[in-house]
Simulated assay, not measured.
Amino acid sequence: MRLSWFNITSLTLGFAFLYLPMIILVIYSFNESRLVTVWTGFSTKWYGELLSNQAFLDAAWVTLKVAVFSSTLATVLGTLAAYALVRGARFPGRTLFSGMIYAPLVMPEVITGLSLLLLFIGIGLDRGVLTIVLAHTTFAMCYVSVVVSSRLVSFDQSLEEAALDLGCSPWDAFRLVTLPIIAPAVISGWLLAFTLSLDDLVIASFTTGPSATTLPIKIFSAVRLGVSPEINALSTLMIAVVTLGVIIASLISKRNFVREQQGVAGRH
């Protein structure tokens, strides 16, 4: 397709709208001045200040724990749900089950957070890291299910049937044949759930307690008093972590795609 000036201008404006604010944030994270809008010189002192800020470090540790546990649990449950929906027969209640899985996709986060808060209060569960993990698992599981379902739909089921004919149990066929093939989708679902957990503010604000403050909540509370250079440094580190995760996921997907293509070429 030939690029016209209109297409080039549209792409430039679109990318500038998306990425220019982040680029400015990264640049000003190295600003020597405490005023975030006045450049006075290059300095990395705010990264040092950030590493000595115990409140931010504690919030970052809580956020990392919640993201790892919730994304892992969401990946397991979302993969099983996707397998049941794609491979399962028309079992009674399938429509209801599918609706319950995908409901968080269209449900406002305020409603999800409030309903989970009422649930935790109703069962007498103290709010903390556990409740945030359960809440993040609830809304991240549907995203994992969508990603894995799209891969299972295009999966060649004859490979699994061949494993069953050769004596594998259904569990062994899933573990040895299906899971390695859909692994890129599972990894992508985990990374998506991890990113969503890192970014969540609304649901975490409903389900957190005094002993568990996540990083988005801490940043939001600090910004209300004014943006500090430490927040710019912290945001830059978060952008770097997410970018690194996306690059790793892309490399893994590319490597698996090349391996599949080589396998297809070898069979022919």
Rank of each mutant, 00 (worst) to 15 (best):
I101A: 01
P21H: 07
R94I: 10
I24N: 04
P210L: 01
E260K: 11
W190Q: 02
F155V: 11
I248C: 10
I132S: 00
M1T: 13
I219V: 10
I24F: 14
F15T: 10
V110E: 02
V26H: 03
V68T: 06
I181V: 14
V76S: 04
V36D: 03
T37A: 14
D156I: 06
S158R: 12
A249I: 05
L196C: 07
L152C: 06
L176D: 09
L117R: 01
F91S: 08
A103Y: 08
S71E: 02
F97T: 05
L73G: 05
G48H: 10
T72W: 09
M1S: 14
A233H: 03
L159A: 10
L198T: 03
E260N: 10
I182W: 01
E49S: 12
W46V: 01
A60H: 01
V68N: 05
P170L: 00
A67I: 02
L164G: 04
T37L: 15
Q54G: 13
T213N: 10
V68G: 04
N53T: 13
V223K: 05
A135N: 01
G122C: 07
D58N: 15
D165K: 08
M141Y: 04
A16F: 10
E260W: 11
E230S: 10
V241L: 12
F120E: 00
S211T: 15
L251V: 12
S154W: 04
S52F: 12
A222L: 05
T138M: 06
L73E: 06
H268D: 14
I8K: 15
L85E: 07
S33C: 06
L35W: 15
L80N: 02
Y19I: 08
F139S: 01
L176P: 06
A212T: 09
V62W: 03
I203N: 00
T12Q: 08
D58M: 14
T37K: 06
